[in-house]
Write a protein that binds this DNA or RNA. Structure first.
Lengths: 270, 270
DNA sequence: TTGCTCCTCACGTCACGTGAGGTGGC
DNA sequence: TTGCTCCTCACGTCACGTGAGGTGGC
């Protein structure tokens, strides 16, 4: 029969607060081995200490409670390791995002933001190979990277003739953190009607207002602000779809300063 | 008269969601320049874009909304820089904490946790110079570091004879994330009654149950678990005050593996 | 017997997100 | 005129924290 301790002592031993232990009991993450029927007092067993220590560390690393529960419930050690590795990977991504956010902030405060020049141009229609999807804001980045990689592979492996840089069509809503349609495409001569997830498509001709963003994608909102300002000041009516053309990106050079993205709105004829 | 845009377009241009803009309006962080009296439609000016861009970056870096407001409201650029620097400092601390949490997790999962040996010993009373304080959980670390530094300085500058390692008396509640009393002390011969914030005190004699923690303080909960287990299994009645003795710490060696902390409960005579 | 520990609600916090149900603008 | 945009509640989310008011245990 294992020794038990009161909630207060268990809190001291685990460095968790009593309120946190109450909460973990309520959501079924860590249940006391015994609850006194009359008094409601909770009693914890000493052999619950390792579990509590693990929980505290995972929570310190911001793992959501349902994920912690899944990890504790996974009988298979391989599965446990996989869940943990997945979380550590997300953490690293988050840290990287924080770092680039710091960089974006510094560059914003560094000043020197003449509004980017905006030009007009008529873009002819072009045939392309694209992957269409409707996606939620959280998944855009992952989805986009996968689709782009797939497209490039398909074009290379099938010996298609590229006629322009990688591009994308995006619902405006995607920039507002709402779900929407996204279509990465590679302009090619005579695209096959279907190739894996990819389909042939015709990017329609359009009169575009365009500006160019230089550098990492984290700061591309500045270009959107400049382009949108131009459109508003000149009272131009535009489509709800935004185009992007990736003139230079990480596949060309690892130096972010050399990356170059065109963003464009189609002018509505009326 | 500056050009205005609807909330949807402003959202697209800033990469903020419409709901977020609603929220920022409600809490007074970013107010539209005009709200239509009939329809309630919000209109934003193009010259609000830089502010919105700054807000988005600060929020990305988890700066709390009241702090963002304070920063935007600070007329003085020096004050702005100071607020920003303070936040970036907190961020760095947070990242460092995450890194040590990862290390603590890995060491926990690395296994090899034989319970630390627990011993009993009678500690004689000793005179000391200490700083007493009652502190909230959030401030403990900062307070403790400051108090410890002060004590060491006082002892050195006043040529006091140390008779033992740095120690501390802590209310048990501090380990449960609740406010409580903390008293860092340095045992010295003939302490002056008062020296800055420090006071002479007599650390009472006690019969202690003791265990030793090796390594960084992040993992000291393991020692508390072992010591608490020993006490529970042997049905020892203890005081609500915990003692710590810092046998080796960062002032001795930069190698965390060599740090050594004794933690102890006083046995209650009965 | 007396504090002290522990209990259960109910509500608050933080920064939004999620609908429901409805109206205004081009 | 018709969608489409935008509106306002009201409530939900996440992981607890904060009291209020009360009872059990040594």
């Amino acid at each position: 029969m294992s020794t038990t301790v009161t909630i207060g002592r268990f809190a001291t031993m685990t460095h968790l607060s009593v309120k946190t232990l109450h909460h973990y009991h309520q959501v079924g993450l860590l249940e006391p081995v015994r609850v006194d029927a009359d008094s409601g007092y909770r009693y914890y067993a000493l052999d619950q200490l390792p579990t509590a220590q693990l929980i505290r560390r995972l929570r310190e690393l911001r793992m959501p409670i349902p994920d912690v529960k899944a990890l504790l419930g996974a009988g298979d050690p391989d599965r446990r390791d996989a869940l943990l590795a997945a979380h550590l990977y997300r953490l690293e991504k988050e840290l990287a995002r924080t770092h680039s956010a710091v960089a974006a902030l510094r560059s914003l405060l560094g000043g020197g933001h003449d509004p980017a020049p905006v030009t007009r141009r008529v873009e002819p229609a072009c045939t392309a190979l694209g992957i269409a999807g409707t996606i939620a804001p959280d998944e855009i980045l992952t989805w986009w990277n996968a689709a782009r990689g797939e497209l490039r592979l398909l074009v290379r492996e099938n010996g298609l003739r590229r006629t322009g840089p990688l591009g994308g069509l995006f619902d405006e809503s995607l920039y507002r953190r709402e779900p929407g349609a996204a279509v990465p495409f590679v302009p090619v001569e005579r695209p096959p009607a279907s190739l894996g997830r990819a389909r042939a498509l015709l990017v329609p001709a359009a009169e575009l207002v365009v500006t160019t963003h230089y550098g990492v994608p984290e700061a591309i909102d500045l270009a959107h602000a400049d382009l949108g300002s131009f459109i508003a000041r000149n009272e131009i009516a535009v489509d709800t779809q935004i185009r992007e053309y990736y003139l230079h990106d990480e596949s060309d050079t690892p130096v972010p300063e050399h990356w170059q993205t065109e963003i464009a709105w189609s002018i509505l004829a009326n």
